[in-house]
Design a binder for these strands. Structure first.
Lengths: 343, 343
DNA sequence: GTGAAAGCGCTAACAA
DNA sequence: TTGTTAGCGCTTTCAC
C-alpha cells in the first residue's frame, strides 16, 4: 500500500511537500501540486488514518449513542447521521444501549476509549447537570431531546428536537376538537424528567385549555421498548376504563400496541376509540386503519445534529439549538366521538 | 492523557516492559506486572489505538455493510453485531446502503479506506463471483444469505443464514395443509439471484409436492423497502385475482403491507385470505391479527457472524457456514380455507 | 516554495 | 526478565 513516502520519492520531492499538497496547503507551486496529485492517483494512495490521527493527536470519529435501540423510530436518524458523517469526512461510531442504561456514563466512556471528537446522543434524559455535561469531555448534541429539566446553560450543549410539549398539546387538541374528553395518555413515566414528562405536560395543557380536568386514571405508564408488556398494560387500561374514547400515545410504537389492545378488547378504531401519536415511523403507514400521527422529520434531525456538531468542531461555532416541527400525517385512527359518549 | 511512557517512568521500567504487561505477554515477572498494572490504573491510562494500529499496521475495525437499511428486520442484528464486536475488542464500522446499491463495491471501498480487518455483509446478493470475493480484500461473512447462485468455494467466505428454500417451503406447506391452493407469493423479484429467488424456489417446491401447478399470475414482484409502492402492487394483485385465499410474503414487512392491502380491498384476514411470512420483527406482534411468521433468531445471527469472523481473524480458523433455524411464531393470520373456495 | 528532521504512542526485534 | 532502539505514516516546525 502506497504511502506519502512512496509518492515523495516517485515525484522527487520531500514528504512534507506531499503532505502539504494532500492537505491543500496553499504554499505549493501549481506544478508540484499537479505532479503529486497525479502520482497519488497512479499509486492508488490511500491515507493512513491511524498515522494521521497519531500525528494530529485526534481522530475523525463522532460517537452516536442510541438509548433504546429497539425503537424503530431511531433507525432513519441513525442512517442520516452516518450519511452526513461520511459526507463530512467523519466516521460514525455507533453505540447502542438499552433504554434503562446511563447514556452519560456510556458516552463518556466512549469518548475516552475511542477518542471521539464529539458525541451525538439519541433518546437521552432531559435533565443533565453540569457534571453530566462535563463528563462527556467533548462537544455533544442532544438529538430528539433537550435539557428542559436540567440546569445546563444553552451554550454548554447543542440540541435538535421538536417542541415536545407543544406538539403533544397539538395532538391532544386534535382529539378534543373531535369532541373527545376522556382521553388517555400512553407514556413511559409521567414524571421521569424525560420526553414522557414533556409530552405529558403538553397533554395536561391541552386538557386545561379545554377545561377538562386531569384524570390520573387515564395516565398509563408503560414501557415503550417492550411491546408485549405495553400491550398488557394498555389492555387492562381499556378494560378498567370503558369510558375512554381516545388515546394519545407519545410514540408510534405505543400507538400500534394500543391499536392491538383496542382490538383485543373487542372495540374498534376509530368508531369506539380514536388514537393519535407522535412519531412517523414507516410501519405506522401499514396499520389498519393507518395511524394518524404527527410525523417528525427523522432524516433532517440526523442531518442537523451532524451539521451542528461539525460546525462546533471545525469552526468553533457556538452551540446551537434547533427546533423542528412535525407534520400531521393524516390516517384513519381519529374520528368524531360518537354520540353515546357525549351524553 | 497518560501514555505508556508515563507509566514506564512512574514505575522505573522501560516502555517495552509496560507494553508487554499491557499486552499480556508472559515474559514479565509477577512483581513488575502488578506494579505496571497498578500504575496504569492510577494514571487512568487509556491506550491510544491510533498508535497501536500504526505500529501494528492494522486496525481493530470490523465493517458492517447493511444493504436496505430501512428494513426493520436488520436492526436487532446490527445491535447484536455491535455488542459482540465490543465484547471481543473490535470496533464496528457501520455502513448503510440502499437496497439497490452494490455492496461489493461499497464494502471493498470501506475495507481500504478504513483499513478494516474484516467485513460482515447484511442483505447482500447470493451470486458473488471470485472477483467479487477478492475485491473485498479481507475475510467476510455473509449474514442472512449465502452464495447459492455464485461460484465461490465454501472456504472462500463464511456465512450465517437460514435455509431460505426449506423455510419458504415449510411456510407454504403450512398454507397448503390448511387447504389453500391459490397461494400468492410476495417478493422482490423471482429471478434476482438473491433471497427472493431462494424463497421463491421453496414456494415452488411446496406447490410441486402438493401437485399444485405454478401460476405466474400469483407471483407478485414488488419492492420490500418501499411500503407505499408495495402496498399498491399488492392491492392490484388482490383485485385482479379474487381467487387468492392465501399469501406467502418473504418478509414481515411485505406481509404487513399485504395485511393492509387486504383490508383496503375489503377482505378479511384470515377468513378470506391467510398470510404467512418469514421474519420475526417485533412490530409484527402488534398487527391485527398477530402475524403468523417463521421467526429468525436475529440476535443469534449477529453474534454468530462476529464469532466466525473473529475466529478467522485471530485463530486463522477456516471459513465456516452456519445454518440457523426459524421458529414458528403462531399468530392469527393463517386459517383454514373456507368452503366457498374449495369448490 | 521546498526539504530535513523531530515527534505523535506504541510494538517488536535485538541486546543485555 | 528487562532495556534500547528502530520504525509504523503522517504533520509540522524550522531552515534554506
Amino acid at each position: 500500500m502506497a504511502t506519502i513516502k512512496d509518492i515523495a520519492s516517485y515525484c522527487n520531492v520531500a514528504v512534507s511537500t506531499v503532505s502539504r499538497v494532500l492537505n491543500n496547503h496553499p504554499d505549493v507551486s501549481a506544478d508540484t501540486r499537479e505532479k503529486v496529485l497525479e502520482a497519488a492517483r497512479r499509486l492508488h494512495y490511500v491515507p493512513n488514518n491511524s498515522a494521521r490521527d497519531l500525528a494530529l493527536q485526534q481522530t475523525d470519529s463522532i460517537g452516536l449513542v442510541v438509548r433504546g435501540a429497539e425503537n424503530p423510530f431511531f433507525m432513519p436518524i441513525i442512517r442520516a447521521v452516518e450519511k452526513s458523517c461520511e459526507e463530512k469526512g467523519y466516521t460514525m461510531v455507533l453505540h447502542q444501549i438499552s433504554a434503562d442504561a446511563d447514556e452519560v456514563e456510556e458516552g463518556a466512556r466512549l469518548v475516552t476509549s475511542k477518542r471521539l471528537k464529539g458525541l451525538i446522543l439519541l433518546g437521552g434524559r432531559y435533565d443533565y447537570t453540569h457534571e453530566d455535561a462535563s463528563a462527556f469531555g467533548a462537544p455533544f448534541v442532544c438529538c430528539t431531546y433537550t435539557n428542559h429539566f436540567g440546569d445546563l446553560d444553552l451554550d454548554a450543549y447543542s440540541s435538535v428536537s421538536i417542541d415536545d410539549k407543544a406538539e403533544a398539546c397539538r395532538a391532544v387538541k386534535m382529539l378534543i376538537d373531535k369532541g373527545h374528553t376522556k382521553i388517555a395518555i400512553l407514556l413511559d413515566a409521567a414524571r421521569d424528567r424525560s420526553v414522557s414528562e414533556r409530552r405529558f405536560r403538553g397533554y395536561c395543557e391541552a386538557l386545561a385549555e379545554a377545561g377538562i380536568p386531569l384524570d390520573e386514571g387515564l395516565v398509563c405508564e408503560t414501557v415503550d421498548d417492550d411491546m408485549e408488556s405495553a400491550l398488557e398494560r394498555i389492555e387492562s387500561l381499556i378494560v378498567e376504563r370503558p369510558d375512554i374514547t381516545a388515546i394519545f400515545a407519545i410514540t408510534d410504537t405505543l400507538a400500534i400496541a394500543a391499536m392491538k389492545a383496542v382490538d383485543n378488547a373487542g372495540r374498534s378504531i376509530p368508531s369506539d376509540i380514536s388514537i393519535i401519536s407522535i412519531g412517523g415511523i414507516a410501519m405506522s403507514l401499514c396499520t389498519t386503519p393507518t395511524l394518524t400521527t404527527l410525523a417528525q422529520p427523522q432524516a433532517l434531525i440526523g442531518e442537523k445534529a451532524v451539521e451542528i456538531l461539525v460546525d462546533v468542531l471545525e469552526k468553533a461555532a457556538p452551540n446551537s439549538h434547533i427546533r423542528l416541527e412535525t407534520t400531521l400525517r393524516p390516517g384513519g385512527t381519529v374520528g368524531q366521538v360518537h354520540s353515546g359518549d357525549l351524553a
